[in-house]
Amino acid sequence: MTAAPLPLPVARAAFADTLDGLSALLRHLDDTTLHARSRCHGRLAADVLAHLHLGLVEMLAGFPARTVRPADVDLATYWSAPPPGAAQPGWAHERFARAVAAAYARPSGQLAHVARTVRGLRRLVADLDAPYRLEFQGHVLEVADFVGTWVVEVAVHHLDMTVALPDVPAPPASGLALVRETVARPAGRDAVAGWDDDTALALAATGREPGMVPVLGQ
């Protein structure tokens, strides 16, 4: 059973803000900064960006997959429901993302490709005017919850890429607030009430920093 879906206007606004935050980050990245370490073990910022871009392209392909089937996951339960038949922990994908990042003649070569995908997604989501359900990775989600999961994905990987880059833009408050909402659903309101800092909560909830049992499978 899924919870009430995220309101579509909330999802649209948070997604637009979060993509704008990612776009601001892209403008600060270059060949040197893309070689900075990330929060993801063994990966550079360039590797994380390639991983995120692959996901955003997959997201683009998900919007047309409309269905009348009932939703079987929501904004929160999506993270604890891996795609049917998925191998864990997904090493093949991570190796592929590294190979994609390394395939560019210069690390900054991927920036224009990512920026183009981001612009297309931002326009597409801004034009969503009515709820519907779609199939994605073997599950069915309300489109607003689908968009919300990608707010979380982008915001957390934004934090991953900036751990060694303190002077670059941070994720927007609205994106991190949606991470808090996502964490509160499985963990409970009391579990997140003591976290005043949404960035710290996002890192703890994904196992990147200590402080709570991870509830988001990032």
Rank of each mutant, 00 (worst) to 15 (best):
C40Y: 04
R66H: 14
P82D: 12
H51R: 04
G55C: 01
A65W: 04
A102M: 06
P70E: 06
R69P: 03
A50E: 04
S80M: 07
S80K: 10
T77Y: 00
A105T: 14
P83E: 15
G85F: 13
G85Y: 13
A92H: 13
L44H: 04
A103Y: 09
P89R: 01
L54F: 02
L22S: 05
V68T: 13
L34S: 04
A45Y: 01
T18S: 06
Q88T: 12
F63A: 10
H53Q: 08
A50K: 00
A61V: 05
D72S: 03
V100Y: 07
D74C: 08
P70T: 01
A97V: 03
D20K: 09
H28P: 01
A50H: 01
L22R: 06
A97Q: 11
L22D: 05
P83A: 14
L56W: 01
V73C: 09
P70M: 02
P82T: 09
R69Q: 13
L44K: 04
H53F: 00
D74M: 07
H51S: 03
G90N: 12
A36N: 09
V73L: 03
A61I: 02
A99I: 03
D17P: 03
R106N: 07
R37E: 09
G21V: 05
W91F: 12
A103H: 15
A97Y: 08
G85D: 11
A65V: 11
T18C: 00
A99L: 09
L34P: 00
A76P: 10
A87T: 15
P107F: 15
L19A: 06
V57D: 02
Y78V: 15
G109F: 13
T33A: 12
L56M: 08
D30M: 09
D72A: 02
